[in-house]
Design a protein around this nucleic acid. Sequence first.
DNA 1: AACTGTGAAGATCTTCACAGCA
DNA 2: TGCTGTGAAGATCTTCACAGTT
Lengths: 258, 258
Amino acid sequence: MATGRTHRPATRSRGIPEATVARLPLYLRALTALSERSVPTVSSEELAAAAGVNSAKLRKDFSYLGSYGTRGVGYDVEYLVYQISRELGLTQDWPVVIVGIGNLGAALANYGGFASRGFRVAALIDADPAMAGKPVAGIPVQHTDDLEKIIKNNGVSIGVIATPAGAAQQVCDRLVAAGVTSILNFAPTVLSVPDGVDVRKVDLSIELQILAFHEQRKAGEETAVGDGALPAATGRGVAAGDSADQGPDGDVPAVMPA
Amino acid sequence: MATGRTHRPATRSRGIPEATVARLPLYLRALTALSERSVPTVSSEELAAAAGVNSAKLRKDFSYLGSYGTRGVGYDVEYLVYQISRELGLTQDWPVVIVGIGNLGAALANYGGFASRGFRVAALIDADPAMAGKPVAGIPVQHTDDLEKIIKNNGVSIGVIATPAGAAQQVCDRLVAAGVTSILNFAPTVLSVPDGVDVRKVDLSIELQILAFHEQRKAGEETAVGDGALPAATGRGVAAGDSADQGPDGDVPAVMPA
DNA sequence: AACTGTGAAGATCTTCACAGCA
DNA sequence: TGCTGTGAAGATCTTCACAGTT
């Protein structure tokens, strides 16, 4: 396939960079914590540290939303919480369905942070007739046969797929046909969806493989750098934003048997 | 990432771009599927479609690993599987510990794909004394008190944190002090770690918030685009945010429940 | 004096388009 | 002919550094 669609209208005015959008939830979380401690204002430096990002990046991110800060002072916590929430669309209610109530699906259903911010588990759906009616996290599981009806009756536009890989695409197709336009996929599969439907995936094994890659490099460098031992104690640190490896220089030996 | 330090040596010779590393697991999965079907070779076009990426991107990605293809023919599936596995460090065994055996931790422990590729759940750790000894996914849960001993005895370098947010940093510190240098964090917290330790996070609520952002845009454009009615059923329709369908490639990691 | 907002430089990543090999 | 490998152009994202505001 690969129909080279890619039609980007043009640089849209309200266009907030995708990278910025991905960080807004992080800022929101940090701000919420400050709000709970009744902190009135924060500087970009402080908030950036709490969110684990660079302060210049944070300021630029906020500049896409508008000028919500006060020079010489910082940002008003409550005001920012509201602005970011609004920008992310969290001031409205988002009914969500979880399809596939196995170990993972059940864990997701039980996940508290779910409801906390605008999201509400509207229904749990599973293909196993034996599960039908059983309550998970206080919500009765419904059978896949009623998927379309459930989506429509609840006005669901966001679906979470936690089924085995083999069933994911089929479930995805039905969700989309029923009106879902955003999907969070936990199944280890690449989903095909029509234009206009967003898919984000969460994949444990991919994350582990990326870590293994860096881990392997570290092991190789150990000797290269000639570092002694010292398993690193509690040093300070920083965070974790993306796993850019704090690259010790030198470079990889690369074992290579071609 | 690093506080101010950010010392990136220079463009490292064997330096594979982070974005490429993040896609290797995707290619590997697609290749493994082809391998199981005994397909001998694939073209960049076919493999790219299976992995949900652009073929030029895939070719460039592979070019960082070396020249493993044959012009006019394509890539040898088995050979590529081996090369990518080796590059990712999957030809060796990675003992992993999961800390926090609640709903999510148990789901992760039961997750099959775990062991499939080089990873092995070496131990399950939880702070609840009542859980000690109980088997989850066939592995007896051990108490947090023995964390250091467990890490050392098993030579663990990768740890998975699935504890409540409040315990995450503390667990992280102990893991790092005991020798863990790669962490996969499912708790909704920004972890501080010393240089040299990689952290990747998986955060459900962040992913949902990103989807909500785009969902909100779509709702807004519906009228803006002047489109009549049609609550967006199957039709195409300009995707507001273009978080490009398919695999949200190399962007930010993601989700995380607790 | 303290801190935001942002132009400009840099770094990365993506995509094009085509030379070059099988 | 068919398809890879890659220079070069473009698009995005990050970081610097400082003008501007309170």
